[in-house]
Every structure is written in C-alpha cells, then in structure tokens.
C-alpha cells in the first residue's frame, strides 16, 4: 500500500462518541504537557513561602504544596515528564515486542520455544513487583532506569499479540505467494506480515499506555519514580500525607491520573470495536 493511496482514502474512522471523547481528552493532556510548560514563566521548584499548602487562589490557580510550590506549574511539568516517559516506554516495548513476537511467530522452532519460556518467566512476576524490585535495587535510579524497569516486562504483551497475529496470517495465500517468489524471511515479515497485523497491536498500545501511566504513578507514589518532586504520583503521595488539612493536593493529581487513564481506555475501547466489529456485535 503506497502512502499516496492511503492519503486519498483518508477520512475520520467511525469510532463513536466515547472514543472521540477519549482522543480529545488525550489531546488536551498532550497540549498541557508539551505546550503549557513552554508558556509558563514559573519553575516547578519556585517556592512561595508565604503560601504553604493553600487551596486555589488568584495567585496560585490550583493552590500550593507543602513547600509553597505552585501546583499548576508542577502539574504541567509533571504532565510533560509523565507523557514523555510513558511514550518512551510504550515505544520501546512496542518495537521490542513486535521484533520478538513477529520473529518468534514467523521463524518458529527453537526461537519460538525460548521466547515463550522467557515470557512465562516474566509473566510470573505479578503486577508492578518486578518494576519495584528493579527500581529499588538500583541506587539513585533516574529516568533511564525507570524506563528500563518498565520495559523489562512491558514488551511481553505486545510480543504475545504479535505472535498470535503472525500465527493467524502465516499460512495465508499472500504470504505463501511472497515466499514462493523468493522473498527473504525479513522481507516477508516487514513488508507482508507487519502491515497486516497492525490493528490489534495499536489497540494493545492504547491500553498499554494507560497501564504504564498507572504503573509509573504507583512507583512515584511509593517514592520510586523519577527523582523530581513534581511527578503526579509524588504530588498525590504528598496529598495523602496532608489529606486531613487540605483536599486540593489529592484531588488535582488523582483526578488527572484518572482522567488520563480513562481517556486511553475510552480510545482503546473504541479502537477495539472498530478493528474487530464482531466483538462489538456480541457485546
């Protein structure tokens, strides 16, 4: 499929209101994360010592935290950090998972066997346990370590979906045709298989993004996140410590995390129904 053909047929896919709502919400967060920090004059660590732990006011639209830092500025910088981190993790996991899953599924044999065993072992660590263990063992873990820790078992989901999809299309005529005219395995995988297995993987990535946001927020909440005080999870943790004195410090970061995850889930649901209409009918 050439790009020009693609462009001619391009129109908004019929995703449904909820999914568009999610996409719009996601866009708002991206704008908050990418554009707003450039416009703001303040720094997330600038302290206003006369206004500690105060609710929203004209001076500080979302109030201040225990150190007198403006919550709005912190949230925006936190959004930039969170989005950057989560996109890197999802991008890394997506590429790794595709590479591993597609080659395991297509080449089969011992490679497939080894990959499946490794996946089994990684899946044996439930939830955020492995992520916590890695971040905790590394002294002064930075953003790089965090991305590594999240990617270590993050690729597994993509690899499984990719492998299952490859097994589905592997024996179809167009793949056999490509092989019989002498395409190399890599060419078959890149030019013939990959374009045909994209859609469920995009859906997976949308849900995966929500998952990474939750895990990152949990790690920051536990004090194991990026070494800055303005991650959403860290702000929420601060809010939890002061929840009997002020509410805005739980409400703002918590609601933001929830909305971001909700946006991804809405978009993911819509995309899934669009990609796999059979599923929608049975629902």
């Amino acid at each position: 499929m050439s790009p020009s053909q693609d462009k001619k047929r391009w129109s908004l896919p019929p995703l449904g209101t909820a999914a568009w709502l999610g996409a719009g919400l996601l866009l708002v967060f991206v704008v908050i994360g990418l554009v707003v920090p450039l416009l703001l004059s303040g720094s997330p660590s600038a302290q206003d010592l006369d206004h500690l732990l105060e609710g929203p006011s004209r001076r500080h639209w979302l109030g201040t935290d225990e150190n007198g830092c403006d919550l709005l500025v912190q949230m925006c910088f936190g959004a930039r950090l969170l989005l950057g981190l989560c996109s890197s993790v999802v991008g890394l996991c997506l590429s790794l998972g595709l590479l591993i899953g597609v080659s395991a599924g297509y080449l089969g044999g011992w490679l497939d066997e080894v990959v499946m065993r490794v996946i089994d072992v990684l899946l044996a660590f439930p939830g955020i346990l492995l992520n916590i263990a890695i971040v905790a063992l590394v002294p002064k873990a930075g953003v790089g370590v965090l991305i590594f820790a999240l990617a270590v078992n993050g690729w597994v989901g993509y690899a499984r979906v990719a492998r299952a999809q490859v097994l589905r299309v592997r024996e179809q005529e167009y793949i056999l045709a490509a092989r019989s005219v002498g395409c190399s395995p890599w060419r078959v995988m890149l030019r013939h298989i990959l374009p045909n297995i994209w859609s469920p993987i995009i859906v997976q990535a949308t849900f995966g993004f929500a998952g990474v946001v939750l895990v990152e927020a949990s790690l920051s909440f536990l004090g194991l996140g990026p070494p800055v005080p303005y991650t959403w999870g860290a702000l929420l943790s601060q809010g939890t410590n002061f929840f009997w004195r002020t509410r805005h410090l739980i409400l703002v970061p918590g609601l933001s995390i929830a909305l971001l995850v909700l946006a991804c889930n809405l978009l993911g649901d819509g995309l899934r129904d669009y990609v796999d209409p059979k599923r929608k009918r049975s629902r």
């Binding site: 949990s218 929420l236 929840f243 918590g254 929830a258 995850v261 909700l262």
Partner: peptide
C-alpha cells in the same frame, strides 16, 4: 466498570479515607 478500571488505586484509597474517615 470503565471508571473502576481507570481509577488509580492510590487515588481511590485516600478518597475513601477522606469520605469514610474524615
């Protein structure tokens, strides 16, 4: 269900505490 899946546990907990303890 959608709200429950999107709700971060570390936000739900403090909110529950606020509602049913404070």
């Amino acid at each position: 269900a959608l709200l429950g899946i999107s709700m971060p546990a570390m936000w739900l907990g403090p909110m529950l505490l606020y509602l049913f303890y404070v």
